[in-house]
Design a protein around this nucleic acid. Structure first.
Lengths: 115, 115
DNA sequence: TGTACATTTGAACAATTGTGCAAATGTTCT
DNA sequence: AGAACATTTGCACAATTGTTCAAATGTACA
């Protein structure tokens, strides 16, 4: 921090309170990674497609119109961040949403946009 | 798309269904912008701090330990994306969360991390 | 009007990100 | 083993992002 800014006495309580209740750095970074994973059009298309049913890498490439490689790269990010899971079946790898929170958050976000 | 990938007959229905239900490009981009705004540690700190109470730019700089300028840049993004609102009071500008969806989503995300 | 201070803005720069390409790996079937 | 095809991976490169610094703008008050 380079600039200095006077602390108002009457703000002091609120500042201390906010500092105290702020989640710790590690949690902030985790939540940030989570939202960051959702904050990309390709990854969102993947997730919205998976709302219906599990799909393989190739299906997702078809649905999104992006290269299989691009989809695979993005799936890795979603997998690493525990947003999707997968099961292998022969040559195919089927991806699906990891849990109910994802579904819930996607729904709220869509609703948020409509207003 | 350069790579071509054979469409399985038995996947065809699921692909068409998913394509049909996918939100349109514009909506996808809006939702993506929304999550993208939440996917950054500095902006998250701002939002978590605002869960308690409205705060001015200077307060937020204190709480996060970042320069006033950095905070102001990030506040502009949150403001543009309708995630925070503000009211002016003399020399100060007080920011607060724009609506209940934000609060709800932040809470679910925190819960999601704990599991 | 001038001073003090809160906030915003624009330029610049390093760091990160998303994609395609080419090659590697995995799996099934003959 | 070899062919066929789904998937993953590493590299490269353009595009985007977050921060700082310096300057501009806004507001209150003497």
């Amino acid at each position: 921090m380079t600039e200095i800014c006077k602390v108002y006495d009457e703000h002091l309580d609120k500042i201390l309170e906010a500092k105290k209740k702020l989640p710790d750095e590690e949690t902030i970074l985790e939540v940030s990674d989570f939202f960051d994973a959702l904050g990309n059009p390709t990854r969102l298309k993947i997730l919205f497609a998976l709302l219906e049913d599990e799909l393989c890498t190739c299906d997702l490439s078809n649905i999104t119109g992006l290269s299989v490689s691009a989809i695979s790269h993005q799936l890795r990010i979603l997998k690493d961040r525990k947003i999707v899971t997968y099961r292998k079946d022969g040559k195919n790898v089927f991806y699906s949403l990891d849990d109910e929170h994802i579904r819930e958050i996607l729904k709220i976000a869509l609703k948020h946009m409509e207003e």
